Computed example of a mutant assay.
Amino acid sequence: MDVLMRGADPLVLFTTLARHDRAWRKFGGGSLLDRHSPLALRQREIVIARTTARCGCEYEWGVHIAGFASHVGLTDAQVYATVHGSSDDPAWSTEEQVLIATVDTLIDHKVLNDLEWHNLRHHFSEEQVLEVIQIVAFYHGVALICGALDLPLETNAARFPAA
């Protein structure tokens, strides 16, 4: 847990799951929190923020926004757009719009059509595409865990912006 928290207090999510070794191991085993992602950190955080926002998981969205948004150069408009924007929001580059559209489609429909695959493959390698899909799947699961456990929001985490 120390590696994940880099000296900060452990998250409620982590301490809750860590009470049961099997739950903690399974969570860590499915996690994509490593330094070897084929995506840039900014791309990864956009996918995580959009996924958790679309799943209504203020807990995880807030943790990631507080921990990474400024580090990866997300503007206030982009942070807002992760919650309230659309995939064609002018806050995003074309490549980032494709990431947002992919998250939205996977959350809403669980499949990508031929055009969506084409757009993804135009901007990202096969390895990166698989990473995007896995991140959406993992953080959709994290949102379900946080919701099911009704975790209290972290004190230092961001809150969803008002519409």
Rank of each mutant, 00 (worst) to 15 (best):
D114T: 15
L4M: 14
S37Y: 06
N156T: 15
S93H: 03
L74G: 07
A163I: 01
D9E: 15
V136T: 08
E96W: 05
G141R: 11
L153C: 10
Q128E: 09
E131W: 07
L149C: 06
E131H: 05
H140D: 09
R54L: 12
Q134P: 00
R22D: 13
P90I: 11
R35L: 11
G62H: 08
G67N: 03
V12I: 15
G56V: 13
D114P: 11
L153E: 03
I107V: 14
D88A: 13
A66I: 03
A77K: 09
L32G: 03
K110Y: 03
M5A: 14
I48P: 08
S87H: 06
T75S: 07
S70K: 15
G73K: 04
H36W: 00
G7I: 03
Q78P: 05
R35M: 13
A81P: 01
I145N: 06
P38R: 12
A18Q: 11
L4V: 12
A143M: 07
E154Y: 00
V63E: 02
T102W: 04
S125W: 01
P161A: 04
L149K: 04
F27K: 03
V129W: 02
G62T: 10
A40R: 14
L99A: 02
K110H: 15
Q128A: 14
D104V: 14
T102L: 10
M1E: 11
Y59E: 03
A157N: 10
F27A: 05
G7F: 00
G147Y: 03
V103Y: 03
I135W: 05
T155C: 02
L151C: 13
A40P: 07
E60N: 07
L41F: 10
S31A: 15
S86Y: 02
E116L: 05
C146A: 15
A69F: 04
S86P: 00
Q97P: 06
G56W: 12
W61F: 02
G73Y: 02
S93Q: 07
F160I: 01
C57L: 01
A53T: 11
N119H: 14
S70V: 14
V129I: 05
C55W: 05
V47C: 01
A40K: 12
H140G: 12
L115Q: 15
